[in-house]
């Protein structure tokens, strides 16, 4: 590709991606980039080296638009859409996702911690000869003996704690993704 072809194609693409901006601003941006490309070409860089340096047209245009979304006080449908999408996501998350994941996290962790303790209490009472009729490990109609019950209770506890940690991580990940999206929106 010759330098002129490259310049035309590259700047044409930048220009197209900047179509939301006023024409005068767009022309100014493209002329400034043209000046730099000519500068780089004069230093002996090939079209592909220049493209590698500037980044592809999409990336370069995004630099200008990122600034425009955050700074431009003018109304745009794209901006409205971004804001609406963000608040729907964050709002839905606040109503449904966050309460579910955080309550589940707390409940799983608590049950996970209590389960093996009760198993241990049952086992100790059995060994000490104390009768605890209302403590047992039961699955459906089947009841495990105190020793096996203790092992099963410990395993169940570990599984519950793992679930609790997973829910907690999901809560944190959701909060992070929301605040990340907010930052992006603000530029």
């Amino acid at each position: 590709m010759t330098m002129n072809n490259f310049m035309e194609k590259y700047l044409g693409e930048v220009d197209r991606r900047l179509r939301r901006l006023p024409v005068a601003e767009r022309v100014d941006i493209v002329n400034e980039l043209k000046s730099e490309i000519a500068e780089l070409a004069a230093e002996g860089l090939s079209p592909s080296e220049i493209e590698a340096r500037l980044g592809n047209a999409k990336e370069l245009a995004a630099g200008y638009l990122g600034d425009a979304i955050a700074k431009s006080p003018r109304f745009s449908w794209r901006k409205l859409g971004l804001v609406a999408a963000f608040y729907s996501y964050a709002g839905l998350g606040g109503i449904i996702i966050l309460p579910v994941t955080s309550i589940c996290a707390a409940a799983f962790l608590l049950c996970g911690a209590v389960c093996p303790i009760i198993g241990a209490v049952n086992l100790v009472c059995e060994l000490a000869g104390i009768d605890l009729p209302w403590v047992m490990f039961q699955i459906g109609g089947w009841t495990a003996g105190p020793a096996l019950g203790f092992v099963l209770a410990t395993v169940t506890g570990a599984v519950l704690i793992a679930l609790g940690i997973a829910c907690w991580k999901a809560t944190v990940a959701f909060i992070k993704s929301v605040s990340g999206a907010k930052k992006k929106l603000e530029g």
Partner: peptide, 26 residues
């Protein structure tokens, strides 16, 4: 712009891409 970018390029800590410098200038 290009002069600014090539100046900053002399120091790795400061080297910055076109897609950052030009929008900043605007």
């Amino acid at each position: 712009g290009y002069e600014l970018i090539s100046r900053l390029e002399r120091w790795p800590t400061l080297a910055t891409k076109e897609s950052t410098v030009y929008p900043l200038l605007r």
